[in-house]
Computed example of a mutant assay.
Amino acid sequence: MIVTHSGRFHADEVFALAMLKFLPEFKDQEVLRTREADDIEQAEIVLDVGGDYNHEKKRYDHHQNSFTEQRTNGIPFATAGIIWRHYAESIFKQMGLEADNEIQFAVKWLDAKLIEDLDAVDNGLYSDDPRPSVSLLVAMMNESSDEPEKQQAAFDKAVNFASDVLKNFIQAAINQAQVVTELEAKLDTLENGIWVLDSKAPFKDFIQNRPEIQRVVYPRNEEQFGVYCNGKENHLPERFRGLREGELSKVSGLEDTVFCHKSGFMAVTLSKESALFLAKSV
Rank of each mutant, 00 (worst) to 15 (best):
D146L: 15
D117Y: 11
P202M: 02
S127Q: 12
S274C: 02
Y60M: 09
F26H: 06
A112R: 13
Q42S: 13
Q176V: 01
C229L: 03
S66F: 08
E36D: 15
I83K: 00
D100F: 03
V134S: 03
H86M: 07
V134K: 09
E245G: 13
S133D: 05
P132F: 09
T257A: 13
T34W: 03
T4H: 07
D198S: 13
N230F: 07
A37W: 10
I40Q: 06
D38A: 14
F203K: 03
N54A: 08
R71E: 06
L97R: 03
I83W: 03
V107S: 00
L137P: 00
L136H: 06
Q29R: 14
I82M: 15
R8K: 15
K58S: 09
K200G: 08
G253F: 08
K157E: 13
Y126C: 06
T68G: 05
T34D: 05
V14P: 01
K157T: 13
F77N: 04
L47Q: 01
W195P: 03
V31P: 01
Q152R: 13
R85I: 00
D146T: 15
R220V: 12
A162S: 10
S199D: 12
L97Y: 02
V282H: 14
V134A: 04
G96N: 07
Y53A: 04
F265A: 09
G74E: 04
M95Q: 15
D39L: 15
A177V: 01
G231M: 07
F9N: 03
F9M: 05
L254R: 05
